[in-house]
């Protein structure tokens, strides 16, 4: 045990003192958050008060939707639907069968869709809609910045969660005798490879969680954007994101020989996944959701940002289970693939 702790301490010191690691994992996300706040902060502000939902005259759903403070109801006949959409008088139309009609994709439409889904689920569970408290659970009274900037920040947090990838790459390099000089020395000692690796994963996770905490504190206390209402589920997602990042790093580290390729791969993968999850602007996420919804379901950063958004912004946990399973699945797959590289004890060339 003392061996393990010593390994953790020294690997932690070695990693934490690496200037580039500290920059990319701690400072860069804070700089990025500041940049996003400055660039997009005042740009988009469709508040909940603005959600305009069209319903049929004397629709049974009207009284349910009326209970939700941030939704304004407009009675619309099907004949005038097209015109109402064109004039932006409504964001979405909900018929008696809870079918949703929209003429474009956007944050407002996404929120309305979530509301309708929640109502459908309540009905399926045979719970009475009248007097139900479900509408309150969305976000009301929770002092949130209800704008698209939130999506960007959730994406940013998701991306930073995966930044354990860099520590993973470093840990892998230190243990593969065909990858680094120091690994040659370590492999000649009585230290077991798996012990070094487990210590490396633990340290990487801890350091990355520390970096996550620094970013969240910065967003919460300096930028004054309050993102988290459901700490329990958010923590699960962030932890899994961290684990995914570190294991992805281990895989990249053990499967490539060239140091520059490894770093480039780590940066490219995390940036690309973040881009598709809407970090560079919510319109990308909306476009992906519309045209390639599958990508959103399998992109680990999208899974994280979507779930953080749904859990904290919409109070919905309906996709949490699926997201957790997919992320755990990725971790297991990457671990197995890494094991195939790591199981080699001797090498053909060094």
């Amino acid at each position: 045990m003392s061996h393990f702790i010593r390994n953790c301490i020294y690997q932690g010191k070695n990693l934490f003192r690496e200037g580039s690691y500290t920059f990319w994992v701690i400072l860069y996300p804070i700089i990025l958050a500041t940049f996003f706040y400055a660039a997009f902060g005042g740009m988009m502000d469709p508040s909940f008060e603005d959600l305009k939902v069209g319903v049929e005259e004397n629709s049974g759903i009207t009284h349910v939707l009326e209970e939700i403070d941030f939704i304004n109801i407009y009675e619309v006949s099907k004949d005038e639907l097209v015109q109402k959409f064109e004039n932006d008088e409504i964001d979405a139309f909900v018929d008696d069968n809870l079918n949703l009609t929209v003429n474009k994709s956007g944050i407002n439409q996404t929120i309305i869709k979530e509301v309708v889904e929640q109502i459908k689920q309540t009905i399926k569970l045979n719970r009475p809609i009248d007097g139900s408290e479900f509408s309150v659970s969305y976000v009301l009274g929770r002092d949130q910045e209800s704008n698209s900037l939130t999506v960007i920040f959730y994406s940013l947090i998701a991306m930073v969660s995966t930044y354990g990838v860099f520590a993973g790459v470093e840990t892998a390099s230190l243990i593969q005798a065909n990858l680094s000089n120091i690994a040659i020395r370590i492999n000649s000692t009585p230290l077991k490879k798996q012990n070094f690796l487990i210590a490396g994963v633990m340290v990487s996770l801890l350091l990355n969680l520390f970096a996550n905490a620094a970013l969240l504190l910065f967003i919460n206390y300096i930028l004054k954007i309050h993102l988290f209402n459901n700490i329990k589920y958010s923590t699960i997602i962030i932890l899994l994101g961290n684990l995914f990042g570190v294991i992805l790093g281990i895989f990249i580290g053990v499967s490539n020989k060239k140091s520059s390729t490894k770093t480039l791969m780590a940066i490219a993968i995390t940036l690309l996944l973040s881009f598709f999850s809407g970090m560079m602007g919510p319109w990308i996420k909306v476009m992906i959701d519309k045209h390639v919804p599958f990508l959103s379901r399998v992109n680990p950063i999208s899974i994280m940002s979507n779930n953080l958004y749904r859990i904290n912004f919409l109070g919905s946990t309906k996709s949490l289970g699926e997201g957790v399973i997919i992320l755990i699945g990725y971790c297991i797959m990457l671990l197995f693939a890494s094991y195939l590289f790591l199981r080699r004890k001797s090498y053909d060339s060094i």
Partner: peptide, 27 residues
């Protein structure tokens, strides 16, 4: 083993490096 290339942790001090490797053998 004293490898041909200098094989030490760049971000650990001289003492820390020696102590780390000693610790792999001596409890």
């Amino acid at each position: 083993l004293v490898p041909q290339e200098v094989s030490v942790f760049e971000n650990l001090t001289v003492r820390e490096n020696i102590d780390y490797f000693c610790g792999l053998y001596v409890d």
